[in-house]
Amino acid sequence: MIKQKIVLRFPPHIVEKPTIYHLIKDYDLMVNILRADINPKKEGRLIMELSGEEANYQRAIEWMNKQGLQIMNLEQQIIWRSDRCTHCGACTVICPTEALLFERPEMTVHFVEEKCIVCELCLRACPARAMETLVDNANFK
C-alpha cells in the first residue's frame, strides 16, 4: 500500500479529459481531492491524496506523465523561510489546517509540513513574506 499527496498540473489541452476517472477505474486508486483550481481551456491544478497498491500507483504516475501532466509531491510546494519569519503569529489564524502553529509559552511559530494542503492563503497573509512557493503561480491567477 502507498499513500501520497501530490500536486498535478494540467496543460490546457488536458484539462477537459477525465483523468480522475482513469486513476480510479484503470489503476484502482483511491483519490481524495484536497484542492482544485481548474478552468476550462486554461492550465489547471489538482492537489490530491492517492492511495492504493504500490505497483498500480507507479503505473498511474507513468501514465499521467505520458499524458503530459506535471506531478510533484506535495511536500515540495510550500516553504517556510525561518530566516525571514518574525514569529508574529499572524498566519496562524489564516492557515486552515494548523500547519502553521503557535507554540506557547515559547511564542514561536512552527511549520508542520505534513498538515499543509497548499491552499496558499499564508503566502500573502504573512506581512514578512516568510512563506514561499517553489511553483510559479503566474498562470493560476
Binding site: 518574525t86 514569529h87 508574529c88 503569529g89 499572524a90 498566519c91 496562524t92 489564524v93 489564516i94 503557535f102 515559547e106 511564542m107 514561536t108 506581512p127
Partner: peptide, 13 residues
Amino acid sequence: VPTASLSSYAGAR
C-alpha cells in the same frame, strides 16, 4: 474567537 498577534513576542523577548 481565535487571536493572533502582529507584533512578535519572541522578538520582544
